[in-house]
Design a binder for these strands. Structure first.
Length: 706
RNA sequence: GGCGCGGUAGCUCAGCUGGUUAGAGCGCAGGAUUCAUAAUCCUGAGGUCGGGAGUUCAAGUCUCCCCCGCGCUACCA
């Protein structure tokens, strides 16, 4: 066992059925990359693992849709995502995949161990749809039918994409297997459940107090509020056992006799992917994976988006503790969501840009990687949803990277070359004193990084360069030099500026790793290595120069050619192409769009409907249902009670006296405890505005509409 | 309806356990300067801290109610 503390960083495993967009990057990968690069520069023993999540029904569904095998799908996206990460400087130590044999073994071993503990799992028998032609149980997504809520004929077993309702397969009207196209039958099946409820007590203490079995584990106050909030909300509602197996042919087989045709539920094996990724890295590098997962000297940090909070803060810790010996996360700095120009990323709408698309579209853009990293960084959704805008991309690049950082570095190197032929001047100076303010800013940068405040850290980095600009301006060596080229004041000024430039060259590395070596080259410095930042910090605080007298600097140049440049519009054009794309999408969407027509029916189908005129005579809200009103309808020959989902648009008093048309022979159904005897016809437009359908002159109640 | 998170200058956001005249960047207005990439530096204007009530000597910061945004969840004939 090594004496040094091990830090294990994980980033959410990307699901390998599609490309990743900028929101993903901003959520779980860029912040982690910055943090890991920072720790490496400090010389910490840090390991960062990730990989593709390659199981689950969504992959088989996509494969079927595209007429490819699941294996082809995951291979495509595994390679794409892996390469794109690499191109953007996302510096995983290992990028694994859950289809790997090592991962299957690891997951099965994990399952087996928990199963052998005896009281972690329970087996339940439930009824599930089964396709008799294909001899297999059907995942929710493999069943389609008519949505019981909106009558959309192509709702999936878990969700209706037309009305957004969450469904269960048994709710579907006329369910059909997407495999055989026939009606599935209900058949009993066995599922394994993880008894999450059993872990509720210690989880509550661990999350709210940061103590584990009474022993201090982490500082709960360091966790983000929205993370704590969501976890405690779950815990206070009571945890339920969760199914960990499914009847599916794509995934990790359940390693038990009599469990043929069953695989581990994807959420169970995915986080174990962090472990198998570590194992593979250890094998490749001759290390011991357990040193990073077990023992007191382990610090585990999960970087994720907010959609993953409960898995990483509740479910996976429960799995780890149930297994035993594993360290639990010290922090889960989950980010919120990144929007794109004011709206959510949407693949189907083409709203947003995927990582590999960006690299392609910006291939002629200098520093495209750092430009993107910086724009995302400055706008990270750390505590609330944020918004990526191309105009801000331009602004951050031009104002901060080019005008502030790039220009300062250029000024310093140009002046050094001009006055001293690039040789650092010899000068007596109390650096501790002279750099006190700069060092305070450096401390701020590291403190922000230590606490996962990456956006603030970036601002502090700019503050350092801005401080350099201000200092240079205050001394204005060019004025003095004109009078006295040998001035000690000029020498001191540039000597100090070179120290600041040197600090910037290393401190910027976690944020803009592609630019850092260029800055180092300007300054005549070699590339940074692990641990360098620690020695730089030690030196500078001890008053030692980082760039000493006699050191030859290199030649400078334009680090960040500005986007708004009067001589060269090429960069602006690249960005403008993206902006134009969005405008086109918006323009296209403005065209009239109507729900597609349903399948043709016969006259006989129509006459089955019994439509009657009526008048609403009373209305009241239904407690604990914000969309429902309980209505009394006068049909002339009788009174009906009808429950209608119009409460968001109408107050009860507004609808009394309203003439309506009622589907009068609809089978009664109970809603929120009230028996609804019919359905009122309403027209609804695309903005959700409702309007009653009624005869355009009063005709009396109870008459037939046909 | 329940739960969680957010709502601070024109824009994007900082403000830990309540404590002096509420901060930064961008934008805007004036000025300085030329080593540098129409750059840099200085000064200034600009905020009922979502609304209302309360606790306190003192509230952006605590409590309650309400409004808005996002998410989870229930319901949606």
């Amino acid at each position: 066992m090594s004496e040094k503390k091990k830090i294990l960083i994980t980033s959410a495993l990307p699901y390998a059925n599609g490309a990743l967009h900028l929101g993903h990057l901003a959520g779980a990968y860029l912040p982690a990359d910055i943090y890991v690069r920072y720790l490496r520069l400090l010389g910490k023993d840090v390991l960062w693992v990730c990989g593709s999540d390659e199981h689950g029904a969504a992959i088989t569904m996509r494969a079927k849709k595209e007429g490819r095998s699941p294996k082809e799908i995951i291979d495509t996206y595994h390679e794409l995502n892996k390469q794109t990460f690499k191109d953007l400087g996302i510096s995983f130590d290992h990028y694994h995949r859950t289809s790997a044999a090592l991962h299957h073994e690891t997951s099965q071993e994990f399952f087996t161990k928990l199963n052998e503990k005896g009281d972690e799992f329970e087996v339940r028998t439930i009824e599930q749809y089964y396709d008799e032609d294909y001899n297999q149980f059907l995942a929710d997504r493999y069943i389609m039918g008519t949505c019981p809520r909106c009558s959309h004929p192509e709702a999936y077993g878990d969700q209706c994409e037309n009305c957004g309702s969450d469904l269960s397969p048994t709710e579907l009207i006329n369910p059909v297997s997407t495999l055989s196209g026939k009606s599935p039958v209900l058949k009993e099946t066995k599922l394994w459940y993880f008894k999450l409820d059993k872990h509720e007590e210690w989880l509550k203490e661990w999350i709210s107090e940061g103590t584990l079995d009474g022993v201090a584990h982490h500082d709960a106050k360091q966790w983000k509020k929205h993370v704590l909030g969501q976890c405690l909300s779950w815990l206070n509602n009571g945890l339920q056992p969760r199914a960990i197996t499914r009847d599916l042919d794509w995934g990790i087989p359940v390693p038990l006799e009599g469990a043929e045709g069953k695989v581990l539920y994807v959420w169970f094996d995915a986080p174990i992917g962090y472990i198998s990724s570590t194992k593979q890295w250890a094998l490749d590098n001759g290390k011991d994976w357990e040193e990073y997962w077990k023992g007191d000297d382990v610090e585990l940090i999960h970087f994720i988006g907010k959609d993953n909070i409960v898995f990483h803060c509740i479910i996976f810790p429960a799995m780890l503790k149930a297994y035993g010996d594993y360290a639990l996360p010290k922090n889960v700095p989950a980010n919120q969501f990144l929007n794109f120009e004011g709206q959510k990323f949407s693949k189907s709408r083409g709203w947003g840009i995927e990582q590999h698309e960006y690299l392609e579209a910006f291939k002629d853009f200098p520093n495209k990687e750092d430009a993107l990293r910086y724009a995302l960084l400055r706008n990270l959704p750390e505590n609330r949803d944020s918004d990526f805008k191309w105009d801000e991309f331009i602004e951050f690049y031009d104002k901060e990277l080019a005008d502030n950082l790039g220009n300062f570095l250029n000024r310093v190197v140009v002046l050094t070359n001009k006055y001293y032929d690039g040789v650092t001047p010899e000068i007596e100076v109390n650096l501790k004193e002279k750099l006190a303010e700069a060092i305070a800013i450096v401390d701020k940068i590291t403190q922000e990084l230590d606490t996962f405040s990456f956006k603030q850290a970036a601002l502090a980095l700019m503050e350092l360069s801005s401080y350099g600009n201000t200092y240079l301006q205050d001394v204005s060596p060019w004025k003095i030099w004109k009078e006295d080229p040998d001035s000690e004041v000029v020498k001191e000024c540039l000597f100090v500026c070179l120290q600041i430039a040197s600090l910037l060259s290393i401190l910027c590395e976690p944020f803009i790793p592609f630019t850092s070596p260029k800055i180092r080259a300007f300054l005549g410095l070699g590339e940074t290595a692990n641990g360098d930042l620690q020695s730089v910090l030690d030196q500078i605080k001890a008053g030692q120069a980082l760039i000493t007298a006699g050191h030859q600097v290199g030649q400078s140049g334009v680090l960040f050619p500005k986007i708004n440049d009067r001589r060269d519009a090429s960069r602006l054009e690249i960005v403008n192409r993206q902006k134009n794309k969005l405008e086109e999408i918006l323009a296209a969407e403005k065209g009239p769009e109507r729900e597609p027509l349903k399948d043709e029916i016969q006259f006989d189908d129509f006459v089955k409907l019994d439509l009657r005129t009526g008048t609403i005579t009373a209305a009241e809200a239904i407690p604990k249902a914000d969309k429902l009103l309980k209505l009394s309808v006068d049909l002339g020959m009788e009174q009906r009670t009808v429950v209608s989902g119009i409460a968001l648009q109408y107050k009860p008093e507004e609808v009394v006296g309203q003439e309506i048309v009622l589907v009068a022979n609809l089978a009664p159904r109970k809603l929120r405890g009230v028996l609804s005897q019919g359905m009122i016809l309403m027209a609804e437009n695309d903005e959700g505005k409702l309007s009653f359908v009624r005869p355009n002159e009063t005709i009396g109640n109870g008459f037939v509409v046909k």
